[in-house]
Design a binder for these strands. Structure first.
Length: 483
RNA sequence: UCCUCGGUAGCUCAGUUGGUUAGAGCACCUGACUGUUAAUCAGGGGGUCGCUGGUUCAAGCCCAGCCCGGGGAGCCA
């Protein structure tokens, strides 16, 4: 039977003397008397006090770290320090042993001590049971909820864009193929090529790399829409910021220009951070302390100037700096590291894409706050971004966060058919396959704008974790699809 | 994919210029203790030193190739 109250609510309870029932997993068992139990409802455990003299010794032996127990007892004010309430155990039942004897079976791998994140990544099926990952995934949930709430409260409609896509020109990198053909003996055309007309969908299909183009279609009627779904990139990226399967939020707004777009994205980010500060205080407090402890092992120059909580507070209040790409190049050319030739990649001048180190300089050294870069050269941006009157730049915007880099990438979209067609020809995007996208520009086209926000990158910032593989339950990266 | 650092007990790590039987803390087992907070104390078991090959009288240590992981870069969210 499901317990009436979670440990989270019991820890707040003042009904001392009442009988309570809890179920959960043992974190530690101290002094043959104190069982620290977690049910995941909060970062905190409930201490259950067992009378070892009145309890069967064989049963006590089975109360080990990781085992699952059911407890009936009396809620009391704690006699010891360190916790407000505890439960005097009347009856304890082992629901699931966590075998502790190596001769009988495998040892439960999680000990009541700090494990490395790399080790826990290989034990992703069990890492939910640690403080850190419990906190991370409670926060991940809160951010999912707050994301929907943010858009819902502003009159947006959530659109489920397809995960399997028939177009391979979404313009955002390598795609995973989706097929039911026999890989060893695919049907062939007379020319000896694979005959995809025989495939499940009658054409080549892939996993989506973005829901943007479909979201644009919906925005041309529902005005304000957003997607929040999984996204797939078959890039051989091996970094702390990239996943082959990640979650992305893509709002698309009719009648919005680039400024509206920046305002929305800034409000979006600040709302989520404030929501976390307000609703995830316990978990953030834990992660804050965890980060402080971690920093102690680092060199002075690699340490953060602010704690996690300070950073969240700061970013939720500060206006983001907004500058154009052109201004950014000027700042970089006047910068100390440029003059002293400290950049690994020299500033090539106007037109070149910014390197990570340049973005980091702008965000972490020059402005010391989130920066929105706008109006990039058209050559380094996607075909659907709206051309400026100068004919050289497009209405793009990237939001750069300290320690993370690009957290949002967006633009005002090119709504003028002739301009769009010109760009597609320049960049060799096949018009034929994009007929449905071009139709929106033929029939009642409207100015509109949108952006993509990397959910895991947002979570990096909110939780203070430093690798996206540690903010998604089961990370998919090159050479790793375990669990 | 490139650069770089690493892989030694279940975990975290030490292991000197190549040299006898490869160590510590935690975990585990046995016992003691019992209002603890990652409980404490005593004792015990536990190793294909990532894999393959090479150099050498002798390799955890040197060399080559491969596998895996971290950090950085590129691609981007």
């Amino acid at each position: 039977m499901l317990p009436e109250k979670t440990i989270k609510t019991l820890l707040q309870d003042t009904a001392f003397g009442t009988r309570v029932h809890i179920k959960g997993w043992v974190r530690t068992f101290r002094s043959n008397r104190f069982i620290s139990i977690s049910d995941g409802s909060s970062i905190h455990q409930l201490q259950c006090v067992v009378d070892y003299e009145q309890t069967d010794e064989a049963l006590l032996k089975r109360i080990t770290t990781g085992s699952c127990v059911s407890v009936d007892g009396i809620l009391t004010e704690s006699l010891g320090k360190g916790q407000r309430v505890e439960v005097q155990v009347e009856r304890i039942e082992i629901l699931g042993d966590a075998e502790a004897d190596p001769e009988k079976g495998e040892v439960y791998p999680l000990q009541p001590k700090a494990h490395s994140l790399e080790f826990l990544r290989e034990k992703a099926h069990l890492r939910f049971r640690t403080h850190t990952f419990g906190s991370v995934f409670r926060i991940r949930h809160a951010m999912t909820y707050a994301m929907h709430k943010f858009f819902h409260d502003r009159g947006f409609f959530n659109i489920h864009t397809p995960i399997i896509t028939g177009s391979d020109c979404e313009g955002a990198g390598e795609m995973f193929r989706v097929t039911t053909l026999d890989p060893l003996r695919p049907p062939l055309t007379p020319l000896g090529e694979v005959d995809y007309t025989e495939d499940f969908f009658g054409k080549q299909t892939h996993l989506t790399v973005s829901g943007q183009l479909e979201a644009e279609l919906a925005a041309m009627s529902l005005s304000k829409v957003y997607t929040f779904g999984p996204t797939f990139r078959a890039e051989n990226s091996n970094t702390a910021r990239h996943l082959a399967e990640f979650w992305m939020i893509e709002p698309e707004v009719a009648f919005a220009d680039l400024h509206d777009n920046m305002d929305l994205a800034e409000a979006n980010l600040q709302y989520l951070i404030q929501y976390a500060l307000e609703h995830c205080a316990d978990d953030l407090q834990f992660l804050n302390q965890r980060a402080i402890d971690e920093e102690k092992n680092k060199k002075k120059e690699e340490r953060n100037e602010m704690t996690l909580l300070d950073r969240l507070q700061f970013v939720s209040e500060q206006k983001f700096e907004r500058i154009s790409y052109t201004e950014a190049i000027e700042i970089l050319q006047k910068s100390k590291p440029h003059k002293e030739k400290k950049f690994q990649y020299p500033i090539e001048g106007w037109g070149a894409d910014l390197q990570s180190e340049h973005e980091r300089y702008l965000v972490e050294k020059h402005f010391k706050k989130p920066v929105i870069l706008t109006d990039y050269p058209k050559e380094i941006k996607a075909f659907y971004m709206r051309m400026n009157d100068d004919g050289k730049t497009v209405r793009a915007m990237d939001i750069l966060f300290p320690g993370i880099g690009e957290i949002v990438g967006g633009s005002q979209r090119e709504e003028r058919l002739s301009h769009l067609l010109q760009r597609m020809r320049d960049m060799q995007i096949p018009e034929k396959e994009m007929w449905w996208y071009l139709d929106t520009r033929k029939f009642g086209t409207a100015p509109h704008a949108g952006y993509g926000m990397g959910f895991e990158r947002l979570l990096l910032f909110v939780t203070g974790m430093t690798n996206v593989r540690d903010v998604i339950p089961f990370p998919r990266t090159p050479k790793n699809a375990e669990f």
